[in-house]
Design a protein around this nucleic acid. Sequence first.
DNA 1: AATGAATGAGAGTTCATTCAT
DNA 2: TATGAATGAACTCTCATTCAT
Lengths: 207, 207, 207, 207
Amino acid sequence: MSEVAYLPTGKRELTKVANRQAILDAARKVFGELGYETATVRDIIRGTGLAAGTFYNYFKSKDEVYLALASEGARQFAPLLKAQRAQSAGWEEFLNAAIEAYFLFLADAHKSWLSQRPPGETQPHVHGETPEMAAVFNEVREAIVEEMANGGAPITDPDYLAAACIAIARDVGEKMLARRPIDTKGATQFAVAMIQGGLNGLRQAED
Amino acid sequence: MSEVAYLPTGKRELTKVANRQAILDAARKVFGELGYETATVRDIIRGTGLAAGTFYNYFKSKDEVYLALASEGARQFAPLLKAQRAQSAGWEEFLNAAIEAYFLFLADAHKSWLSQRPPGETQPHVHGETPEMAAVFNEVREAIVEEMANGGAPITDPDYLAAACIAIARDVGEKMLARRPIDTKGATQFAVAMIQGGLNGLRQAED
Amino acid sequence: MSEVAYLPTGKRELTKVANRQAILDAARKVFGELGYETATVRDIIRGTGLAAGTFYNYFKSKDEVYLALASEGARQFAPLLKAQRAQSAGWEEFLNAAIEAYFLFLADAHKSWLSQRPPGETQPHVHGETPEMAAVFNEVREAIVEEMANGGAPITDPDYLAAACIAIARDVGEKMLARRPIDTKGATQFAVAMIQGGLNGLRQAED
Amino acid sequence: MSEVAYLPTGKRELTKVANRQAILDAARKVFGELGYETATVRDIIRGTGLAAGTFYNYFKSKDEVYLALASEGARQFAPLLKAQRAQSAGWEEFLNAAIEAYFLFLADAHKSWLSQRPPGETQPHVHGETPEMAAVFNEVREAIVEEMANGGAPITDPDYLAAACIAIARDVGEKMLARRPIDTKGATQFAVAMIQGGLNGLRQAED
DNA sequence: AATGAATGAGAGTTCATTCAT
DNA sequence: TATGAATGAACTCTCATTCAT
């Protein structure tokens, strides 16, 4: 309609991407520290240099930014998990692959987020989990459940077993993040050994 | 204003206690269903026959009722756990005792609360844990950590191990509650077998 | 549940009714002056001595208070109009009755509202009609349309005619309110004479 | 910054005019559909191919575009009305001329706007009148009032009479637009006959 | 002690307008 | 001049808490 069409400059595009990222970063931090309910949109934008309304140029709602974070995490993680699983021959290898993938994701994410949450300052009623962690964890859960349904780990009570494996992965992963240096190899060995041992224990108990 | 000063009668005291209990019951239900943030004080008092303001005759704040619930749970549970532990000779017996105590508590609490949460209707961003469950769980965690520190389960990494034991207890306990009939014996056997097996697995891995 | 049940005292009930009325009055004034869109809930409560949140103890939304005002007006007016219509034999009497009822309502409402809008200070983009006026006006409109459909005023174009009658009633009524003293008799005579004369003029034009 | 200063070419000027017109067209449509308050500047520019900020190169504010629309309508209409009036000998001719001019304007505007508002989908609290219609209507109003003040229609109550004439013109005009085909002749005949008849009726009532 | 209306800070969100590009 | 992201005041509405009764 107009004679002169201004194309978006590289600079503009850059700040747009940067702002989006800044909001995502701030949101991740805030959700991790405060939890979804307690975190406010204003808490999030305070972490960027932006104004309140600007948030809504990038995300339609508080919920949407949470979901964006979660699905971004899942999207990045899914191929890693898949690749690891593809290489695995049996249950033990699968388990090792899945847990290692999860721990690597956690470690990587943790490093790049510089979560820096002052230790011990945990608020009451708070998750302590970023949306991405939640999403990625769900991927692992599903992989384990699926593998188990396929007969990967034939044992009396697959429901309890899945719950237990997942629980170990989650909580050992969390502990791992609290240590320096972050040792994914060690944590993976621990978790896998414990789960495999547990399986043996359960087989014996069955008799 | 009245000439005669009535001493608090037993009846009146009972009423006070009953109201307090009604609030606690309603709060437990609501916190369990909605989580701390989402639950409103009005949600809680709606569950009693009382008026909004009356809540503050019994608790100073929404937070206080949460804490009251948690510490009540812990207070009731602590002696049970202590008794069970006292009977235990070694680590295995201790573990069995602690987990059984925990599962019994869960089952009992669950029965008496009639939590009735329609399954599958879980809201996003919500805990699904009553304050008491959280508190009692912490008791168990501390017992395990303490016992482990006392050399109960000599293993490479007590920190990870504690995390894993606790994780299993929590999540198998949760699964247990979802089944009918609630089988604490079976769940305890499962959890203990898995943990003990896990310990063995870890010992082998160490070599 | 509690031993002592406090019944609402008269005083409490009084302020409740009074507050509701204060909000309605303020809302009427504000809607009349500013129109629905421009008026804010804060504009309304500012007209009472109440706090912002209190508005929502009485009405669920800005829309609801508008509707309440409108339907209250219609409810009060409907029987008056019905009574007047019941006494009417033919179209002319009906017309007289309907318009008189409308003008009486306007005059009465105007007096009791003390609308006191500073003359000349009319804002741009504004209705200048309270919700009640709108609602009552609709009642009159429907009555006229209905009567006309029943053959009350057989004329070539009932659609245009209804529009014209209604238009006269509305705008003459408005002028009437701007004069002192408010002369409903005179305004009614004028409007009816004009409409009847208009009908005659249309009959002649038809030939 | 550039060495060569280009004078505005005819082409460029045209673009400016075209953009301005595009905004005016979109604004008319949007104001007509949504009303002043509900319409947003973004609603308006969405109707053009332009960007949000560009709006403010042409109009200082949302209000200004409304006013521009209104005065443009008035400016276009005033000479038409004047010409029609100039040809009129007496009151009846004047009335016919004024109303016809108004209805012609309405019909023309309506056609060219293709207002296309889905009938029946009227929002609550919305005008259904473009700024131009409002402005042009005011011109007619003033003409009638003026003519009446000059003794064109000697009758008891010129204030009421003006109100009534105007009311008829407005509402019959509105009805006219809703019909197919749009029959300005018929509508004019109707309105004039009704008003003239009304005048006669008022004269008789005076006796 | 019980009541429930009143309070007001603060939540998520919208939008007219500005301004760097 | 065109662009469209940034701005921030203002909006509707919620809710923990207070307080007159």
